[in-house]
Design a protein around this nucleic acid. Structure first.
Lengths: 214, 214
DNA sequence: ACACTCATGTTCAAGTTTGAACACACGAAC
DNA sequence: GTTCGTGTGTTCAAACTTGAACATGAGTGT
């Protein structure tokens, strides 16, 4: 894929929930139903984390959690840099027929500072306009069979919808909508049970890490 | 992927241009710019063809084309069946955030008979309505962070566009628009040079096959 | 003749995805 | 107390994708 969705989702999840293990990441992403549209089987997560570790973008600690060994991950500075890059790329890149890369990146909006998010979305707005340029009129005599041209038309009208949505989104961001990085947080991450359980694990992992590091 | 885009494109290309070699398929698909949105590097094509052969969906003949050995493929009955299945699946399946599977299948429309194409698109129309059902009003209090809900809204408005487009497409099909299987063919496949060259190769391959088979 | 580029046809190692399946703990039911 | 399901945490072989690179020929200019 032009945009590395899997890596981005993994880095994002680690960055949000660290220190975290593979199963927790899977639970989280599945609860967002990300597995329905991204490449996200259990295998992808574990092997993806291994790759990210090789690249120095996450660190792995094998904690002894009350007798059981658990592999928990934390993001590194390099990882944070790469994550920012991937999100930016995902937000800015307009692709034919697929909004997967954008939606994955947009899901990570709260990790960005407001000005940064705005800048990316403004670039995207511009890119969408560029992509729509050849389709201003409807008299494009494309050298393709009629049904193929008609198929492209679907994409074009959907892209026009995206343009409107983007303009609205930019306006909302400017108006202070949504809760981005470094701003007060009113929405409780993943309400009810699973969220709290995760937080507890996070606490425990932190404690164990502290012991190991000190 | 829920829909096996690569296999479908390969089977479709073989079915349209048989007897055909890997490079020709690549040229064709690249000329449709399919490589920009599907997984379609040279490697995928050759290894995909090998897989399809193992599955008995295509046959491979190593022809001696004037001193050079070329691997040309033809589709089998099993292949035709699987292709019809894949196209139907691609046409009917509504996925979150991605129109790739649908667009790939829609590109193969001319391989279907009009009634079959119509049936699939009507099913899709129905599926789109089902997917839109929960979004009739705008007062869905989804248990998700605001930005995530907002991201989904993009998909919803695009899906509404698709609904309109689909209704129009069904109407056009009913009215006799486009050229489907078994109907007179007025659009010359891939005009000008490359198309004709391909046709020549096709002739030659057919002749060589005839010699081998007889 | 010679070198250079471009088109044809294909291969391959490295990386990624898939999803079934493993190992173990915990609680409930019989 | 043992069978049974369900949740946690992870592995692995098989399949698939990637894209650079190979081998060869045909054309072009010098």
């Amino acid at each position: 894929m032009a945009v590395h969705t899997t890596r981005m989702l993994l880095l994002g999840a680690v960055s949000m929930f660290e220190p975290v293990n593979g199963y927790q990441i899977r639970r989280e992403l599945v609860s967002w139903r990300v597995d329905e549209w991204a490449n996200l089987g259990p295998g992808s997560i574990y092997s993806g984390l291994t790759t990210l570790e090789k690249l120095g973008q996450v660190v792995r600690h094998d904690l002894d959690d009350d007798g059981r060994v658990v592999a928990v991950y934390q993001i590194t500075d390099a990882g944070r840099g790469e994550l920012a890059r991937l999100i930016g790329e995902g937000l800015e890149t307009v692709t034919l027929f697929s909004g997967v890369g954008f939606q994955a990146a947009f899901g990570m909006l709260p990790l960005l500072r407001r000005e940064v998010a705005l800048r990316h979305l403004e670039v995207r707005l511009h890119e969408v306009d560029r992509a729509l340029e050849p389709w201003r009129a409807d008299d494009h005599v494309h050298e393709a069979p009629p049904h193929a041209v008609h198929g492209l038309r679907l994409w074009v009208v959907q892209l026009r919808e995206e343009r409107a949505w983007l303009a609205d989104t930019v306006a909302r961001l400017r108006a202070g909508d949504f809760e981005l990085d470094g701003e007060p947080w009113t929405w409780v991450p993943l309400a009810s049970d699973p969220g709290r359980e995760m937080a507890a694990d996070q606490e425990r992992y932190r404690a164990l890490l502290g012991r190991a590091t000190s």
